[in-house]
Each structure stands twice: as structure tokens, then as C-alpha cells.
């Protein structure tokens, strides 16, 4: 079965582009523009990798990370953010984030990171 990837970013364009490029690699991709419905979905089903924006209205990326880790400790989380600062990166890394990218993210690097997350 194809690995399942979830992408959460409050800007639709990010999810759309990620979906298009990741599906090309054969992944099953679901996208969300806010964390609430994404977490509801996660409660139903496990994803192998969650790619999430850090700064979002409502529930932010750190909370997504904590929830994912609580539900599925083995699911890897990749954090992306337009507002890269050291503190955020350190906090994310402490909370066992798999990878941390400032936006714009090179799609190829994201793909490589996902491959690593999947143990390939």
C-alpha cells in the first residue's frame, strides 16, 4: 500500500502543490487548510508522515505535532514555516520533529526528507 502523507497549511496553494508533486512519487496524499479537521481525520486513521505549517490560525503546528506524537508515536512530522526563527526550530526539534524547513521549501528536499522518514 502506498505510504500515506498528510499536508496541513492554511494556504491552499501549498497543499495543492505538495499533493501534485507527492502523488507523482506514488504517495497517497490528503491536504487540509486548517488543523482542526486534520486532527479529526488523524483520530480516525494513521498517516505515515504529517507535513504541517507551524504558524496557523487556531491550532498551530506545535499542537499538531504533540497530538500526532501522542496518537501515533511512530508517525513522522515535518514542520514548514514562513517565519523561521531559531527558537521555533529548537522547540520543534526538542519535540521530536523529523525535519524543519523554512518556506519556500524546495520540493525535492521535502521528497528526500519524506523518503528518509519512511526509512527508505
Amino acid at each position: 500500500m502506498s505510504p500515506r502523507i498528510m499536508v496541513i497549511d492554511d494556504e491552499k496553494i501549498v497543499g495543492d502543490m505538495a499533493k501534485m508533486s507527492l502523488e507523482q512519487e506514488g504517495y497517497a496524499v490528503e491536504t487540509f487548510t486548517s488543523a482542526e479537521p486534520a486532527l479529526e481525520r488523524l483520530a480516525q486513521e494513521k498517516f505515515d508522515v504529517v507535513v504541517t505549517d507551524l504558524k496557523m490560525k487556531g491550532i498551530d503546528g506545535m499542537e499538531v505535532l504533540r497530538t500526532v506524537k501522542r496518537l501515533y508515536p511512530e508517525t513522522k512530522v515535518i514542520m514548514i514555516t514562513a517565519f523561521a526563527n531559531l527558537d521555533a526550530a529548537i522547540e520543534a526539534l526538542r519535540a521530536e520533529v523529523h525535519d524543519f524547513f523554512p518556506k519556500p521549501v524546495k520540493i525535492k528536499e521535502l521528497k528526500t526528507s519524506i523518503q528518509r522518514a519512511l526509512g527508505k
Binding site: 497549511d9 494556504e11 501549498v14 502543490m17 517565519f83 518556506k103 519556500p104 521549501v105 520540493i107 525535492k108
Partner: peptide
């Protein structure tokens, strides 16, 4: 380059 399809970008960028 960034808007060329090889990067995920958002409106902030």
C-alpha cells in the same frame, strides 16, 4: 526560481 514549480511557497513569500 521559487515560483517556478520546484518550491512550495505561500503568499508570505
Amino acid at each position: 526560481e521559487k515560483l517556478g514549480g520546484d518550491y512550495l511557497f505561500d503568499i508570505t513569500y
